[in-house]
Write a protein that binds this DNA or RNA. Structure first.
Lengths: 134, 134
DNA sequence: ATTGACTCTGGACTTGAGTCCAGAGTGCAG
DNA sequence: CTGCACTCTGGACTCAAGTCCAGAGTCAAT
């Protein structure tokens, strides 16, 4: 046990086989050990690393971010990991604020739109067609 | 006046020249009128339409959405415009909820991380390295 | 030994919304 | 008339994160 084919690894980590090879090509996973046949072989270390990547992605980190995180975690650099997490949190906060701004604008327009009648009465069209605000 | 070169149009609408040509190629703007030289000429109609596109993009609509909106606004179909706006609002709401979930998770991790010391004490690393939850 | 499932490679393709380019032709101020 | 800024075209390129492919080789169960 604890020796996995690429298919088993991918399945256990919940990613596609191509994704595993893609991560290897792009330095997120170290080059895998090989059987005589050339088939890749994996152990639990690689499985854990792959799961790390999947979870970090779910937290909104890009593969580039994750490469950094992996380096930092190898270096045991806790303070820099914390900083990276904070930067990402702030980043996500900004995206939330922007989306909320957009949602509020849409809400205003939708509420004001009668949903029938002449186009001139539709505030959504009017808002999109205003002459002001370059 | 009211006759603009592509550069003037782009500048007044706040987009790049290449973007104007790109929109024309992709059916968001009608093929522009031409001078004898082949230079495109624009009027206020096109400027308004281009601004419409810019504003709709700022509201989170994709160019594909906008193509639909433009068709609907030509058809004066107010009820369907309202529906499109509502769908987009719901879409944005889902994205906000997802980002808030991520932010909460990051907040938990950051709060618990001492920011120094051994890696084993860092909950961010621990969370990303857990063996549970495939 | 045969089958069917698996794996290998390098490279091309995808999506969305542009951006950049070379090489040629134009417009206009001084 | 010179020079510089502008515009034209078709096509290639960018970004991220994969996904798909053909053609060849391999593994494991029957």
């Amino acid at each position: 046990m604890a020796s996995l084919s690429i298919g088993q690894l991918a399945q256990q980590a919940g990613v596609a086989i191509d994704t595993v090879r893609y991560y290897e090509r792009n330095g997120l996973l170290a080059p895998a050990g090989r059987l005589a046949s050339g088939y890749r072989r994996y152990g639990t270390t690689e499985l854990r690393r792959l799961c790390f990547i999947r979870r970090a992605k779910a937290l909104g980190f890009s593969l580039d971010d994750i490469r950094t995180l992996l380096t930092l975690s190898d270096e045991q650099d806790v303070s820099r990991i914390r900083e990276a997490a904070q930067r990402k949190r702030d980043d996500i906060e900004r995206r939330i604020a922007e989306l909320e701004r957009i949602r509020a604008a849409l809400d205003t327009l939708i509420t004001a739109c009668p949903g029938h009648g002449r186009a001139e009465a539709c505030p959504i069209l009017r808002a999109l067609t205003q002459e002001d605000s370059p």
